[in-house]
């Protein structure tokens, strides 16, 4: 009897999770489509949103799922961007897929390096290490100007058409669809990752690393691995940025970019892929709209929005909405 009930339970959970996947994919496609038809002249903004969404998803993996405090996550993103850019500008390898691979590899290596340093400390010292790290990456890119173009930025990136068919056009159509495809693929892969045994192990480490050790698990090894995966995801974002804008600036490797990513993640809600995505979209739309409506006070309004969210919806906008829906469902059941 108990077994029957359990397999029933199991099936229900499966269905719920599977439908969660479908809803997620549908939502991403729908929001992408709405964006495409509402801002047909501003596809560059949408593509920029996708690149930042990849950065925020990547940050969510280490901060939301593993509890690592970092204000230096753009180091992974920027490494991906520069690797893809340098491949094209200095080596003349212009195949966007190869550039993407270079971005992923560079992001993963930067993740390994960052993880190996940041994970040595916990709490505030960890945060300080991450800040030191992003400044080092930034300064390195600044000084290695023969490779990176320094403060002028890296230009001369000229990606070929994708599969030799889809040329990167002036209107940003190809870049947008390329970005949407990448985002969907990454999203599905991450959905698998976060509820795999490894994802569960990381959630456990976030809550109580000592407990995981008492179960015979090694928190450090798991966190480093997650950092590498996170770096690969950020690298996708960085490479997409290099390919779509055809320029890489030092700002992609900056403290500001890192901090903004963290703000977006907190806005949407940590520890949830949907939280990371919705936080990015809401923040960037709000920023775009308010900065156009009131160029003098837009930063004030962004600040006010953040304070309101942190005070009244501490789980983030998506987190709070999800908790509300769950409560309603339970009340009805």
């Amino acid at each position: 009897m108990a077994l029957v009930m359990n397999s029933e339970n199991e099936r229900l959970q499966h269905q719920r999770r599977f439908s969660g996947d479908l809803i997620g994919i549908t939502a991403i496609v729908a929001i992408g489509a709405i964006g495409y038809f509402v801002f047909p002249d501003n596809l560059a903004l949408l593509t920029r949103m996708i690149t930042i969404a990849l950065l925020v998803l990547s940050l969510d993996l280490v901060t939301g799922y593993c509890g690592v405090a970092t204000l230096g996550h753009a180091a992974l993103f920027g490494s991906g961007a520069y690797a893809a850019g340098i491949l094209s500008a200095h080596y003349g390898i212009n195949d966007p897929l190869l550039m993407m691979l270079a971005g992923i590899a560079a992001g993963a290596i930067a993740g390994l390096l960052s993880g190996a340093i940041i994970l040595r400390a916990h709490g505030l010292p960890q945060l300080v290490l991450s800040i030191a790290l992003i400044h080092l990456f930034h300064e390195f890119a600044n000084k290695a100007s023969s490779w990176t173009g320094g403060s002028d930025g890296l230009s001369g990136i000229a990606p070929d058409p994708i599969f030799g068919l889809f040329e990167f056009d002036l209107y940003g159509q190809t870049a947008f669809f390329f970005g949407m495809t990448l985002l969907l693929v990454v999203f599905v892969l991450l959905r698998f990752l976060v509820r795999s045994p490894f994802g569960m192990l990381c959630r456990g480490i976030r809550q109580d690393p000592l407990r995981i050790r008492a179960m015979g698990g090694s928190p450090m090894a798991a966190l480093i691995r997650m950092y590498v995966i996170s770096g690969a995801v950020a690298g996708v974002g960085g490479a997409l940025n290099a390919i779509s804008t055809q320029v890489v600036g030092l700002d992609s490797l900056s403290f500001t970019q890192s901090a903004e990513a963290l703000v977006m993640l907190v806005l949407g809600g940590t520890g949830s892929l949907f939280g990371a995505l919705s936080g990015t979209v809401i923040f960037m739309l709000f920023e775009d709209y308010v900065s156009a409506a009131n160029p003098f006070h837009w930063l004030t309004m962004v600040g006010a929005l953040l304070i309101a969210v942190v005070l009244f919806a501490p789980k983030g906008l998506f987190g709070t909405a999800a908790a509300f829906v769950r409560r309603r469902k339970e009340a009805r059941a």
Binding site: H14, F192, L193, S196, P197, F198, M215, I229
Partner: peptide, 14 residues
């Protein structure tokens, strides 16, 4: 963890 499968990045244990 005991079986050394806790690092699997795919598949749901359920």
């Amino acid at each position: 963890q005991r079986d050394g499968k806790a690092k699997r990045a795919f598949g749901n244990f359920l």
